[in-house]
């Protein structure tokens, strides 16, 4: 799967750079990517539905269910600050960029509006790279750390695009926690970007 994902990504970049994004099959895929995502989510839902007893397992976590999103937010912001110190970028911009947590479309636009086009480009690229990185890190993390930690690099994308990798490399329980985490992180992203930019 990882090799296929790398091939798909490289083919996509090559098509984009060669200007083939206006050719019919490529254009159809790109312009219908939301529809593809919806189909994928429906199929993921079926996988969860086929897994019996997940809800009761999730209930056992109670309030501790918030531990993962809290850890991801804290880790991302700390990582953003460290990145800012290393690159010399202002801390507010650095923390805001990391606060995107993989939601590249929103963070690119939001940070672009707040701090200019170059900052927006960095936010877009870094958050897109985070989403891609999480695709490829999930198999390694599931093997070497634990299933739940696979949610960490995915951040706000753990409720949608990175879910199929979760399904493939973790278990049904982690998938449900992943969706929950994605909802919390996605809700927090706009607030965090604004908060970090104005208060750091």
């Amino acid at each position: 799967m990882v090799y296929l994902a790398v091939i798909a990504l490289l083919c996509g970049i090559a098509c984009g750079m060669a200007g083939l994004d206006n050719v019919l099959p490529v254009e159809m895929i790109v312009s219908n990517k939301d529809l593809i995502l919806y189909i994928l989510m429906f199929l993921v839902g079926i996988s969860i539905g086929l897994n019996r007893g997940i809800v009761s397992k999730i209930k056992e976590y109670h309030i501790k269910i918030f531990v993962i999103p809290a850890g991801i937010i804290a880790g991302s912001l700390a990582g953003g600050i460290v990145s800012g110190l290393l690159t010399g970028l202002p801390l507010n911009q650095s923390a805001a960029t990391a606060a995107g947590m993989g939601w590249y479309s929103l963070s690119g636009v939001a940070i672009g509006n707040l701090a200019g086009a170059q900052a927006g480009s960095i936010a877009f690229l870094s958050n897109l790279l985070r989403e891609i990185f999480s695709f490829f890190s999930i198999p390694w993390i599931s093997k070497n750390l634990n299933y739940l930690t696979c949610i960490a690099p995915a951040g706000a994308t753990s409720e949608d695009t990175t879910l199929p990798m979760m399904i493939r490399y973790t278990n049904g329980e982690t998938v449900v926690l992943s969706v929950f985490n994605g909802v919390i992180c996605s809700a927090a992203v706009p607030f965090l970007i604004s908060f970090c930019f104005h208060f750091f």
Binding site: A5, C15, K33, L43, L128, I167
Partner: peptide
């Protein structure tokens, strides 16, 4: 179902690549 999920995932990654490359 799993096969279709893989196909959809690869199409999404491909479209991300196109977005990046274009």
């Amino acid at each position: 179902n799993e096969f279709l999920q893989t196909v959809c995932t690869l199409l999404l990654i491909f479209s991300m690549g196109v977005l990046l490359g274009s």
